[in-house]
Nucleic acid binder design. Sequence first.
DNA 1: TCCCAGGACTACT
DNA 2: AGTAGTCCTGGG
Length: 277
Amino acid sequence: MIKIKIEKPFDLESTICCGQIFRFFKNENKSFDIILKDRVINVFKDDDYLYVSSNNEKDLKNVVEEYFDLKNDYRAMNDFLIKSDEKLTDAVLFSTGLKMIKQDPFETIMAYIISANNGVLQIASALNNIAKKYGKKVIFNNKEYYLFPSYKDLSCVTLEDFRGCKVGFRDKYLKQMVNKLNNNEIDLNEFYNLDTNIALDKLMQNAGIGPKVASCILLFAYQKYDVFPIDTWVKKVMKNDYKIIGEKNIRDFAKKTYGKYSAIAIQYLFNYGRNKN
DNA sequence: TCCCAGGACTACT
DNA sequence: AGTAGTCCTGGG
């Protein structure tokens, strides 16, 4: 068990539960178990400290600080967003301490391909099925967990196998992606340094990845905050609160108003919309 | 039984 | 360039 002093606002519950990640478990004592790349962690937070334990405590403090983006100060972004759009004030204040989690690129790609026309519970279920079947088992606190497999681990998985994991019609998209990665047709690291629009185009050349999925991948795995993932929920908010209809109009508005922090604005809106009541 | 859930693809104008 | 119809799956 390690202790990490909380220096900046950090809302652990919102950060985990606001829809960024799928493979976590909430315990009765309000701690969370999270499958974090190559290890399983348990996190609990009080007013001053984050308490973390893991099956692998090597370099744990750095890994956790990096994962939850704890060293980044969000004040400048928040001030910018409020100044850019007064109507966002309540959502920004409500979401103080919400951090953007830095996720593993491969798992993020698979997760958001599965997310197309799908519900959160089913996405999580499919990912857990894949992990249980092809990922490495980890015993932690006397419970079984399964790491998410690498694309090498999945190289021989067939369409039928994917279907068996309840991914539905997205089976072919997942298989194509895995094949391309194993054939070195895609370099997962290059997206960190690509301009957002170029990266979007490149991702969307793959079957099963459209504008929304590509945006989510760049946001959650590559920290591109100038994307604007438009889903049905965002459309609803834009229509009701901003009187803006149509994807192109929404995109233009976001770019003009929120600019390089568009994705943060969406995340705050989403968090506020779902949890304020 | 029908409908939809944090979309994308295909086949049409 | 823009738009219907279709796509697994589980739950209401």
